[in-house]
Nucleic acid binder design. Structure first.
Length: 572
RNA sequence: AGCCCGAUAGUAUAAGGGUAGUACGACAGAUUUUGGUUCUGUUUGUGGAGGUUCGAAUCCUUCUCGGGCUACCA
């Protein structure tokens, strides 16, 4: 039932606590072994990686145990919800590789929920309350003191029925009345102190239009929706634990299908925030360019960053599911995408530098050109080779040359030798500088017998660097993304957002790329690529035919940078 | 403060009374025409105190610490 079953989840070797519950239920014959889950987003925002965890869990569970998963929009608050979000959510779930059994809406059940409410009134378990919200809040009491009974609590069944019907009929303005259930105003669980189950909102609903002016609260909609859909295992995050007694209470009082709720800990990721409110703030205050900014933890952002659905599913599988609070190292997400992209992406050379270093090969004839055949992916023999033009002048990274090299630097330096990837070994003969002392050019000589693939020179060099032929180079824009925040857990930090943001989360640089890349991008066949020795990149929608734009998904692991950092630490 | 939930290497996650494992990370080495990949090895853990038991990460008590709840949001 899903397009992309997560194979690894079945051979993980152990069960998470929810799988354990499901297996126990199957073993005991509960629901005759049937497994039916649901993913229940509220259509009032964009999905993020935390939702991906829930999606993978719900769909993955059904997948593993031969069950089904509904996509159900929890659309009980018309003032915050919109079809725009419905569409983006459906798109994101599909992109992640999942296909739902039924597309449903809590609003599909408004009439049924209304009838449930009348049934509770008839049982003497619900009453219409004219108190203001302030009064109701005051009545609630505190965790240490019991609440007080509302003066409207003992209205007669007839009176309640009449008022409730008139609420539905639109006789009262917003806030004039609510419907509450009589549970227990003295309960130590605040959720049980006569919660409101219906409120008046004269608002247009994205699906039911103006049919309704009263809307059920979450607690009165969610569990019953699960029940109506005969959901066997209703999974949600830990903050709903105190709601579970209410969930069960409604099911019992209404005598409907006994769905059961199980809670797991939500995902937290280092160097980012996950709350809708904070993400919205990032967008609204212009810290990012939008919900799909590649630095955002939204599915849309991650997708634009170049992450793949499989890598996210793998990530969700690796982080596990439990009930303790957690803060997952974003490095694990990066590991997952690197692991996949290493196997699948074509390699290509690009020099990412505002001012790349020009290297002139003095003993290579002016005007001469050669086509080098370079393998596309050493991890994938079937990926073939591509043509890479070579000439007398090539660009290299400024970082790949040092006039005074430190120990263990095996790139280029005066008098030193390196191999130009897929081409020749060269030697640096001379460093040319301008009047300010900046290096403008390197004059080198090449070893003709060292041509890649037919090297008879017998020379062994320590370093291989990438390059792009100057006359063939194509200019591109490259967006180097890094973590959005400079602190591990911004949500727990007291300081203002502003101070926590990583000032270098985006660096835009000019790049010179080999021509094969541009042909591929024009033909639309290019998705993720590896810029050799730099990282994984993806073509961005901002590209134009004249100027391709690439987003950096993630860097390659960089042992040399680590080595240098060690030095820094020692010095500093 | 009351109630609820939780606590296993740096980060996650297993072990369901019987050898504390796995992944990522870190560290070291080998291989490498990507300082990538791959391979090998090493390191680090049951929050504290009692109790039950032949035997406790697991069961009990208690303490400590972390989180949640007191919306006409979900």
């Amino acid at each position: 039932m899903t397009e992309a079953p997560n194979e690894s989840s079945t051979d993980r070797g152990h069960l998470n606590f929810i799988e354990q519950i499901v297996e126990d239920d199957i073993a005991s014959g509960k629901h005759r072994g049937r497994v039916h889950t649901r993913f229940p987003p509220e259509p009032n925002g964009y999905l993020h990686i935390g939702h991906a965890k829930s999606i993978c869990l719900n769909f993955g569970l059904a997948d593993k145990y031969g069950g089904k998963t509904n996509l159900r929009f929890d659309d009980t608050n018309p003032v915050t919800e919109d079809t725009e979000y419905v569409d983006s959510i459906k798109n994101d779930v599909r992109w992640l590789g999942f296909d739902w059994e039924n597309e449903l809406y809590a609003s599909d059940y408004f009439e049924q929920l209304y009838q449930f409410a009348e049934a509770l009134i008839l049982k003497g378990l619900a009453y219409v309350d004219d108190s203001t919200s302030e009064e109701i809040a005051a009545q609630k009491g505190t965790p240490t003191e019991p609440g007080r009974l509302s003066i409207y609590r003992d209205r007669s069944v007839d009176e309640n029925l009449d008022f409730f019907r008139r609420m539905r009929a639109g006789e009262y303005p917003d806030g004039a009345k609510v419907l509450r259930v009589k549970v227990d105003m003295a309960s130590p669980n605040m959720q049980l102190r006569d919660p409101i189950i219906y409120r008046i909102k004269h608002a247009h609903h994205h699906r039911t239009g103006n049919t309704w002016c009263i809307y059920p609260m979450y607690d009165f909609a969610h569990g019953q929706s699960d029940s109506i859909e005969q959901i066997t295992h209703s999974l949600c995050t830990l903050e709903f634990v105190p709601h579970r007694p209410l969930y069960d209470w409604f099911i019992e009082q209404l005598n409907i299908f006994p769905s059961r709720q199980y809670e797991f800990a939500r995902l937290n990721l280092t160097y980012t925030v996950m709350s809708k409110r904070k993400l919205k703030k990032l967008v609204e205050e212009g810290h990012v360019t939008g919900w799909d900014d590649p630095r955002m933890p939204t599915i849309a952002g991650i997708r634009r960053r170049g992450y793949t659905p499989a890598s996210i599913r793998d990530f969700c599988d690796r982080i596990g599911v439990a009930r303790r609070d957690n803060l997952i190292d974003v490095g694990l997400l990066e590991f997952c995408i690197r692991e996949e992209l290493n196997k699948t992406t074509p390699r290509v050379m690009a020099v990412l530098d505002e001012k790349p270093l020009k290297l002139v090969i003095t003993n290579y004839d002016e005007g001469r050109e050669e086509i080098m055949r370079i393998e596309n992916n050493p991890e994938d023999a079937s990926s073939g080779e591509r043509d890479v033009p070579f000439s007398r002048d090539v660009y290299i990274e400024r970082d790949d040359f040092m006039e005074v090299p430190p120990k263990k630097f095996f790139r280029l330096f005066p008098g030193g030798m390196v191999r130009l990837k897929g081409a020749y070994i060269i030697k640096c003969d001379e460093v040319i500088k301008d009047e300010t002392g900046e290096i403008t050019e390197l004059r080198c000589s090449y070893i003709p017998e060292s041509r890649s693939g037919s090297d008879t020179s017998g020379i062994n060099v320590k370093g291989t660097i990438h390059w792009v032929s100057v006359p063939h180079a194509v200019e591109a824009e490259v967006r180097l993304y890094d973590r959005l925040f400079s602190v591990e857990n911004p949500a727990a930090d007291e300081r203002d957002f502003q101070e926590l943001l990583n000032p270098t989360s985006l660096e835009v640089v000019r790049a010179f790329v080999e021509p094969a890349l541009v042909d591929a991008s024009r033909s639309g066949s290019l998705t993720n690529v590896q810029f050799m020795r730099k990282g994984y990149f993806i073509l961005d929608a901002d590209s134009t035919p004249e100027r391709p734009v690439f987003n950096r998904t993630v860097t390659l692991k960089d042992a040399w940078a680590k080595e240098q950092n060690k030095g820094e630490v020692k010095k500093g």
